[in-house]
Amino acid sequence: MEIPNSNSYSQAVLGIQTTVSVTLARQQVPLSRIIDLVPGSMLTFDSHCDEPLTLEVGECPIAKGETVKIGDKFGLRIREILREEE
């Protein structure tokens, strides 16, 4: 059995795919409000529409940015990398 060198191992690990999410706003609401949702229902958030969006990996925020239009799709322009509190 051949033991992979650290460079090939690192490259293999860096090739692992993970899910990223962009979060516009977050709040807690009573479950009764969720049960009452129907098409056309509106939820209001305290965030202003110009506030930065949060990029998350595995529910861990890693960056903040702004929405950009790329053709008929949208993207996120990174403006700040968040550092983990030590």
Results as ranks from 00 to 15, higher is better:
Arg33Gln: 15
Thr54Pro: 06
Pro4His: 03
Ser32His: 07
Val22Ala: 04
Thr54Lys: 05
Thr54Cys: 07
Asp46Gln: 11
Leu55Glu: 05
Lys64Trp: 00
Leu31Asn: 07
Gly75Tyr: 12
Ala12Pro: 00
Gly15His: 00
Ser8Cys: 01
Gly71Leu: 06
Met1Trp: 03
Arg77Trp: 01
Arg77Ala: 13
Gly40His: 14
Tyr9Met: 13
Val29Trp: 08
Glu59Asp: 14
Thr67Ala: 10
Gln17Gly: 08
Met1Gly: 14
Glu2Met: 05
Thr54Ile: 14
Glu56Arg: 13
Thr67Tyr: 03
Phe45Asp: 10
Gln28Arg: 09
Leu37Gly: 07
Lys73Glu: 13
Leu37Trp: 11
Arg83Trp: 03
Glu56Thr: 15
Glu84Gly: 06
Pro39Ile: 14
Met42Tyr: 00
Pro61Asp: 08
Thr67Met: 12
Thr44Met: 04
Ala25Cys: 02
Phe45Trp: 12
Thr54Ser: 11
Arg83Gln: 08
Glu56Ser: 15
Leu53Cys: 02
Val22His: 10
Gln27Trp: 01
Pro39His: 05
Arg26Tyr: 07
Ile70Gln: 10
Val38Ile: 12
Ile81Pro: 00
Ile3Tyr: 10
Thr23Leu: 09
Asp36Arg: 15
Glu56Leu: 11
Thr19Asn: 09
Val13Gly: 01
Ser41Ala: 15
Ser6Ala: 15
Thr18Glu: 01
Thr19Trp: 03
Glu2Arg: 10
Ile78Ser: 04
Ser47Val: 14
Arg26Thr: 15
Val22Pro: 07
Glu59Gln: 13
Cys60Glu: 14
Ala63Leu: 06
Glu80Met: 03
Met1Thr: 12
Glu85Arg: 01
Arg33Glu: 15
Gln27Met: 04
Arg83Pro: 00
Glu84Phe: 04
Glu86Arg: 01
Arg83Thr: 13
Gly75Arg: 13
Ala63Asp: 12
Arg33Leu: 05
Leu37Cys: 12
Glu2Pro: 08
Pro52Gly: 05
Glu80Thr: 09
Cys49Val: 14
Glu80Ile: 02
Ile3Asn: 09
Ala12Val: 01
Gln11Val: 01
Ser47Glu: 13
Val22Glu: 05
Ala25Val: 04
Phe74Asp: 06
Leu76Tyr: 10
Ile78Cys: 03
Asp50Tyr: 10
Ser41Met: 14
Pro4Ser: 06
Gly58Trp: 04
Val68Trp: 05
Cys60Trp: 03
Gln11Met: 06
Met42Ile: 03
Lys64Tyr: 00
Pro61Val: 14
Cys49Gln: 05
Thr54Gly: 03
Glu2Tyr: 01
Pro30Trp: 04
Lys69Leu: 13
Glu56Ile: 05
Glu51Pro: 02
Met42Leu: 12
Ser8Asn: 07
Gln28Tyr: 11
Leu24Gln: 09
Ala12Lys: 02
Val20Leu: 14
